[in-house]
């Protein structure tokens, strides 16, 4: 009996699942493909083990509340599983997962705040302004001080700095998450860096 190419492809794809040999060395994309084909809970476990801690840290540091962060994490993973079929692999799985995480947390913060005053968010297109704070200085900030300053700057500034410097997201990806144009994102990054530097010198009476 001759097998159709599609059947052979599916058998090859499912072979590790059938033989129980899905290993931690397999890429996220491979595991996502296998999960879509089989809905195997074991495959979800692998993705969960890989990313749950990082997702939780992001939720906890943005929402600043352990219980809220745990609830958020549950919602985020449900969202991921329900939308996995839409994941088009244009970006890495981790980038896609983190963008859902940031989106969820930022939405949740916005709902909590219901800010009345006009903020940077409400400003439309912005002119590009040169960024005078060197990234290298920011990236080399002492770890203890870095955490302390990130904990006191506004959450949206913290989120944007984490997206850019911790998760290496592109300006375009950040723009999609925040529903902003690329120039608005650049302006927000610049302002977040300025606030970071200002808070740093307030706390430590020193320049970074």
């Amino acid at each position: 009996m001759l097998l159709q190419p599609k059947t052979i492809l599916l058998i090859n794809l499912l072979n590790p699942v059938i033989s129980g040999s899905v290993s931690s060395s397999q890429s996220d994309d491979e595991i996502v493909d296998m999960y879509i084909a089989t809905q195997s809970p074991h495959l979800f476990d692998i993705l969960y083990e890989r990313y749950s801690k990082k997702v939780f840290i992001k939720c906890n540091s943005l929402l600043r509340n352990q219980a809220k962060a745990e609830d958020a994490m549950q919602e985020i993973f449900i969202k991921v599983l329900l939308n996995l079929i839409k994941f088009n692999k244009k970006a890495k799985f981790s980038t896609w997962l983190y963008s859902i995480t940031y989106n969820y947390c930022i939405d949740s913060i916005r709902k909590d705040k219901k800010r009345k005053s006009v903020s940077v968010d409400d400003v439309g297109e912005l002119e590009e302004v040169p960024d005078t704070i060197d990234d290298k200085r920011l990236l080399e900030t002492n770890i203890v001080r870095l955490k302390a300053v990130l904990d006191v700057i506004p959450v949206e500034d913290k989120a944007i700095l984490l997206m850019k410097y911790q998760d290496d997201m592109s300006i375009r990806d950040i723009g999609k998450i925040l529903s902003k144009s690329e120039s608005a994102v650049k302006m927000k990054i610049k302002r977040a860096k300025e606030k970071f530097v200002k808070q740093y010198s307030n706390i430590y009476q020193d320049a970074i």
Binding site: K53, N60, I143, L146, K147, Q166
Partner: peptide, 15 residues
């Protein structure tokens, strides 16, 4: 150090 901070937090995190 943003990435280093994340590594430290991942090692310590409890939930």
């Amino acid at each position: 150090n943003f990435k280093e901070l994340q590594k430290i937090q991942v090692d310590k995190v409890e939930f």
